[in-house]
């Protein structure tokens, strides 16, 4: 497309005195002023009392979720810790003698799972990388604390805030499949 030069319409003398512009501005501002003062047409949201409706797909704070049986979904694979760009996630793996998962057959569960909400940039890469659908960016946007320590959320807190997220129960299905088999039944842990 070629550039199309549009001639600027010459201003009349009246327009060149700025008066129409000033009067126009006066009218607009006066109207808004009156609307606000007399009709109460305010766009302000009185924040702590009034809250914004968070849209679907909003990327708020990442929390851990439990499955429909109330079991921790995270298996401590540490991919989120690896992918996290600001290194906000810190997982302590269970170790050989550590606690086993609170659901059957998954063998592994994090001993500690910490997200430093001061470091977190809410990019959602942890959610994207998670092979167990155990971490989700939820709708919390107002995360406050009185000191730096309180902004590091531990596993317990993350699970409590995260709630339940039903999905395919991979490990449970595997266990049922194995138990239904004639030979090599896998012992339920």
């Amino acid at each position: 497309m070629s550039t199309k030069v549009v001639d600027r319409a010459p201003l009349t003398f009246y327009e060149r005195t700025y008066l129409p512009a000033i009067l126009g501005g006066l009218k607009v501002t006066a109207k808004h002023f009156a609307d606000t003062v007399f009709k109460g047409n305010s766009v302000t949201m009185q924040y702590p009392e009034e809250r914004w409706v968070v849209p679907e797909g909003y990327r708020g704070a990442p929390y851990l979720v439990k499955d429909q049986d109330g079991a921790t979904k995270c298996v401590s694979c540490q991919l989120c810790e690896f992918v996290c760009p600001p290194k906000a996630i810190r997982i302590t793996p269970p170790g050989a003698d550590g606690l086993t998962a609170d659901r059957k057959n998954a063998e592994k569960m994090p001993k500690e799972f910490e997200i430093n909400m001061l470091r977190c940039i809410f990019c959602g890469m942890c959610q994207e990388v998670c092979p167990e659908e155990a971490i989700f960016l939820q709708k919390d946007y107002s995360i406050t604390g009185e000191n730096r320590e309180s902004m590091i959320f531990n596993k317990e807190k993350l699970l409590k805030l995260g709630g339940t997220h039903a999905g395919i129960q991979k490990w449970k299905n595997k266990l049922e499949e194995a138990q239904a088999q004639e030979t090599f039944p896998v012992d339920a842990q």
């Binding site: 401590s76 694979c77 540490q78 810790e81 690896f82 793996p93 269970p94 170790g95 050989a96 550590g98 063998e107 592994k108």
Partner: peptide
């Protein structure tokens, strides 16, 4: 290895 079991992911 039982010693290394669930201790740390190797990529770290």
């Amino acid at each position: 290895s039982k010693d290394f079991r669930f201790k740390m992911r190797v990529w770290f």
